[in-house]
């Protein structure tokens, strides 16, 4: 499974306006509302907020990777947003967050979840790539940037 296969126009927002961390997470999770039913959405919300209370996923350099595993999901879902204005996120380097990647997966698929989380970490660890994403203006552009980088890094075939 690739990261780009988890994203589409509805779950990518190139210009999200959020007032604070709570609002940001709320809106990001709502991007999944067309993919899952209300109950699932609530379980996703609980899981993500619970992870966030264990540790802030503000991993530094303006990036946050909120994530979680929820019961009864059919498969993994992701959302990505660039923020209109940086938001304070209690990140490790105290820098406000400029981009967020949300990953949620079914509780029963731990191995896949860890793999996808690892893959996102790998990609997002590259400074040039983060810069390219930052300059994107549309959802299509963002998805294409992910696609190119993922192929460059992992090859095309990977299942």
């Amino acid at each position: 499974m690739t990261i780009v296969s988890l994203l589409n126009k509805e779950t990518v927002n190139p210009k999200l306006k959020a007032s604070d961390k709570d609002d940001l997470l709320d809106q990001l999770i709502n991007l999944l509302s067309k993919k899952v039913d209300d109950e699932e959405l609530q379980r996703i919300r609980d899981a993500v907020l619970q992870r966030e209370s264990i540790m802030s996923t503000g991993v530094g350099k303006g990036l946050a990777i909120p994530h979680g595993k929820a019961r009864g999901l059919a498969h993994s879902y992701a959302a990505f947003a660039l923020l209109d204005e940086p938001v304070e996120y209690n990140a490790i380097d105290n820098q406000p967050v400029k981009m967020v990647f949300l990953l949620v997966g079914p509780e029963s698929e731990n191995s896949l979840h860890i793999k996808m989380l690892s893959r996102i970490s790998r990609l997002m660890n590259n400074e040039d790539f983060r810069k390219q994403l930052q300059e994107c203006e549309s959802a299509e552009q963002i998805m294409n940037t992910f696609k190119v980088e993922e192929e460059r890094y992992f090859g095309v075939q990977e299942g």
Binding site: M55, G60, H67, I92, S111, M124
Partner: peptide, 27 residues
Amino acid sequence: DEESNIISCLMAKHMEVRKTIALVSKG
């Protein structure tokens, strides 16, 4: 907690820690 291991190593990487090692068990 494997998820935390990955996320905190990524944090460390962003803090310019030279070597990061995460415990991840996979099947």
